[in-house]
Design a protein around this nucleic acid. Structure first.
Lengths: 330, 330
DNA sequence: CTGTTAGCGCTTTCAA
DNA sequence: TTGAAAGCGCTAACAG
């Protein structure tokens, strides 16, 4: 590997001069600059990133930590982060927290290989984030609330989303509304369920636990939950699936049993994944502002990096997207 | 920031001892190790990744460079890379080549911030890769063929895919088969088109240039191409869209004009994107082995990193996926 | 088993 | 405008 030393030697200047020239500092004469660049080119010199980072104590890059790099779910979020990063002249790398303590994510968090990070990965514990955060290493935590210095959390208002979904069904005249939940201990699920209950209560509708079925946030789980609902007789007139994946499974189960959506039963999901638009019938759902979330996260991170003050908690609203899977109860 | 020096001082040992202890080297006594860890914990010590990389000349991480980090298209590819990386105990970061010469990707390529890289981004030129590649920095180039030391290319057999698609249509009895192409200069498009022509020739079917329409690889382009085909009268009985996105646009155009797929016209795509399964009718297409491509790329990269020999060129086969959008010509 | 020390490749202060 | 030299935080060779 050729180093800056080699370049300096070939150009017949001092290392410092070579460094100044290569980095475009003003104080170097045209002549010298040219010589240095020539030498660099001849040797196919490529700077060693670590060495310069080590010295300058800044990498001009941030990391986006996701629990699954390959999830299409993150697409818009990434887009938001990317756009804002680009505007700010920062570099962005994405890494996965797959593998827990041995994951790339944890390595990046603990070894400060970047200037700051945005974390959207539930398999990383709060403690670890608290430990990793530092004045010179701010962290933006998505979809969790965490109170600590140098950490800002951004959450989607899941409670409001749950409320919105349920209210939509109620306003269509539905009085018997089932809730297919995600893993019961999940933060997201708990809040969506709270919103569901609040809407019921506000409209004086009773909550029936037999209509609260667990679906594990998976397509399969939603399928099974719908099957269970059907086998219970006394089918509700509407079902709120706590995410779209489960709703997809539910749609399939209803179709298999000859129950027509939305004629016989209304279905609403949560997330607005890409597929929601393409199912038959297309899926009414609650849209999470994912792009905005990513953009906001990046924006705040860059403020922090500039030493500016910010709130340490943000909440984003959801939006009801009405498609074909819900209709007025006749 | 607390450094290893601070830890050593607090523990009352030398830096080297602290380093050995922290890195789990054998030669340190239990007692000393304990002292060091205690001190590290008390100071919330976190190692500086660059410094150690600089010294050890290895990062144990590779980069996956994509032209668009947020594209759902890459999902399976990433999965393949990730799985194999995990098995090999390497870290993986993904970065985008968006922004050309100022992109994160180029920074990582030129500044050797990782041990090696897999590139799937057409906006990075061959020259740059050739320049960046080095014995200690192997590069795997996907979907392009490039001949240079320390670079291995992996391609999907686009020609064979084009042939397969066309042959499928021919075998269903179609004699009038249009080709909706991507940008005409694209490597991918050229090869798919070649395959199309080979299949025609092999079955003694004439090639008609009026049935070769450009669609730019976009949904919109496919839509327009289909419209054009329709307005030309003399509609072919089958259309091969050089990718699924265009086929989606085509499907919409046909539906709008009351032309039924596959009754009136057969449609085949290329890629097997996730949506292909969900359109009405679902889309017959050519699947690219994306997971395999990612896994193979990573596998080869790790071989190279271990100093083993490999081929410098690999070609992967495609597969015909028959769904509803093609049928026997009656 | 532990300590001393050189040095990875770079940036930047200071002096010329 | 240029050069000499210090030192970022760490690892590892070597000596004890």
């Amino acid at each position: 590997m050729t180093t800056i030393k080699d370049v300096a030697k070939l150009a017949g200047v001092a290392v410092s001069t070579a460094s100044y020239a290569l980095n475009g500092k003003q104080k170097i004469s045209e002549e010298t600059r040219r010589k240095v660049f020539e030498a660099a080119k001849k040797l196919n010199y490529q700077k060693n990133g670590f060495a310069s980072d080590l010295k300058s104590k800044s990498t001009k890059t941030i990391a986006l930590i996701l629990s699954d790099l390959s999830g299409p779910y993150y697409s818009q979020l990434i887009q938001g982060v990317q756009d804002v990063s680009y505007e700010n002249g920062y570099n962005l790398v994405a890494c996965s927290s797959f593998g827990g303590y041995n994951s790339t994510a944890v390595k990046f968090l603990m070894e400060k290989r970047v200037d700051g990070t945005i974390v959207f990965a539930h398999n990383i514990e709060n403690d670890l984030l608290v430990q990793a955060a530092h004045e010179s290493f701010p962290i933006i935590a998505l979809d969790r609330s965490i109170e600590s210095d140098h950490i800002v959390s951004i959450e989607v208002d899941n409670e409001q989303g749950g409320y919105l979904a349920t209210k939509h069904l109620v306003e269509l005249g539905h009085k018997h509304i089932a809730y297919v939940s995600g893993p019961v201990t999940t933060h997201d699920n708990i809040l969506r369920f709270k919103g569901y209950q609040r809407a019921l209560k506000e409209h004086n509708l009773p909550y029936k636990s037999k209509w609260n079925i667990s679906g594990n946030f998976t397509r399969e789980g939603g399928y099974n939950a719908a099957k269970l609902l059907i086998s219970q007789k006394d089918l509700p007139s509407a079902v709120f699936f706590a995410n779209d994946e489960m709703a997809l499974g539910g749609l399939r189960a209803f179709k298999e049993k000859g129950i027509e959506v939305p004629k016989d039963i209304s279905v609403i999901g949560f997330d607005d994944i890409q597929l929601a638009e393409y199912t038959r019938p297309s899926l009414t759902t609650i849209r999470q502002p994912k792009y905005e979330m990513g953009a906001l996260a990046a924006h705040i991170l860059y403020q922090l990096l500039k030493g500016e003050e910010t709130e340490n908690f943000y909440k984003l609203s959801t939006e009801l997207i009405i498609r074909e899977s819900t209709k007025i109860l006749t």
